[in-house]
């Protein structure tokens, strides 16, 4: 039952990512070239409204369906790690024009090459798991 809820929200996510055009390689390229406000408007609206929603849920101690309160386990602040990791991610994001969520949505569109993208992203994650002890964190 719970899984069906997440599956349904996933379907909604796929539709929203498509209609927002956030899955478009061209939109991402345009964003990194600062030639349109579109993507900044989307992310900005989502973050401002999202922050308000989260703040209200915390303020009014909303119980989630898992019987927990809304919280976030903070990550330790490691500036160089997050800058370095973020940059590696950003290189791939700009080249693929897709971050992980949209990769799956694009697969649903029938762009089968995204099966390969997802496979190599999984391989990238696997490689991280192997070499992580040797990376600065």
């Amino acid at each position: 039952m719970r899984l069906i809820s997440f599956f349904s929200v996933g379907i909604l996510f796929g539709i929203v990512m498509t209609k927002s055009e956030a899955i478009s390689w061209f939109r991402i390229h345009e964003m990194f070239r600062f030639e349109s406000f579109h993507m900044y408007g989307i992310i900005g609206t989502a973050v401002v409204v999202g922050a308000l929603i989260i703040a209200l849920m915390k303020r009014f101690k909303v119980k989630t369906l898992r019987d927990t309160f809304v919280s976030y386990t903070p990550m330790p602040l490691r500036v160089s790690r997050h800058l370095m990791a973020g940059s590696i991610f950003g290189l791939g994001w700009a080249l693929m024009g897709a971050c992980p969520g949209p990769m799956f949505v694009m697969l649903g569109h029938g762009f089968w090459i995204f099966g390969l993208v997802i496979l190599s992203a999984t391989l990238g994650t696997f490689t991280y798991g192997i070499v992580r002890d040797r990376l600065p964190h």
Partner: peptide, 26 residues
């Protein structure tokens, strides 16, 4: 190459656009 960078960077940085830019910033 692109997929690999995304998968590697996301785990190294403990999250991607949804986890950091949307959830984390919120």
């Amino acid at each position: 190459i692109g997929g690999f960078l995304v998968g590697f960077g996301a785990r190294y940085g403990q999250g991607c656009t949804s986890g950091h830019a949307i959830t984390g910033l919120s």
